[in-house]
Amino acid sequence: MSFLYTGGCQCGQIRYEIRAEPLTLYVCHCKECQKQSSSAFGMSLTVAREAFIITQGQPKAWTRKADSGREVKNWFCGDCGTRLFHERTYSPDTINVKPGTLDDTTWLHPVGNLWTRNAQPCLNISEQMLNYDGQPDDVRLLWQKWTQQRS
């Protein structure tokens, strides 16, 4: 089976393709994701690095420390500022696409919540999802739950 998901920034200067089934989708409630999304949380669609292709434009990058203390390289459009994806130094074979930048978001159903200790009090965290107080040591359960949900 072949997969092709497309997306890009708000102004259209940067376009990308995801050429394989994503590995997982989760919601992150850390303070940095709240800041970057200007909302109560951020979402991350983890994909294999080799499956993610920039097809138009060149995003800009800046690097920051995550709440976990790990380094994250953030990629965004230099014109409109849309955050597109980020790379984590501790996981060089995967990237996290910001799924709101996909052209079609109707199929997105997160399987977990990270950093629930920072979740805004107005949110209800579903007990049917995998929930972590902080950063999970092992993301394989998120990947497994995603695969089960998608089959």
Rank of each mutant, 00 (worst) to 15 (best):
Y5K: 11
Y5C: 02
G7T: 06
C9R: 01
C11H: 05
I14P: 05
R15P: 02
R19Y: 00
L23N: 11
L25F: 07
C28W: 02
C28T: 08
C30S: 10
E32S: 14
Q34C: 09
S37D: 06
S39V: 04
S39D: 09
T46Q: 14
A48F: 01
A51I: 04
F52E: 03
F52P: 06
I54D: 07
I54Y: 03
I54E: 03
G57V: 09
G57I: 06
W62N: 12
T63R: 13
T63F: 01
R64Q: 15
A66E: 14
V72M: 15
G81E: 05
L84T: 04
F85H: 15
H86I: 00
E87H: 14
Y90R: 03
I95R: 10
V97R: 01
K98C: 13
D103R: 05
D104M: 05
T105Q: 15
W107Y: 11
L108G: 09
H109M: 10
P110E: 11
V111L: 04
G112D: 04
N113P: 02
N113Q: 08
N113W: 00
W115K: 01
R117Y: 05
A119T: 05
N124W: 05
M129P: 00
L130K: 07
N131A: 08
P136C: 03
L141N: 10
L141Y: 01
Q144D: 11
K145E: 10
K145A: 11
R150C: 09
R150M: 12
S151T: 14
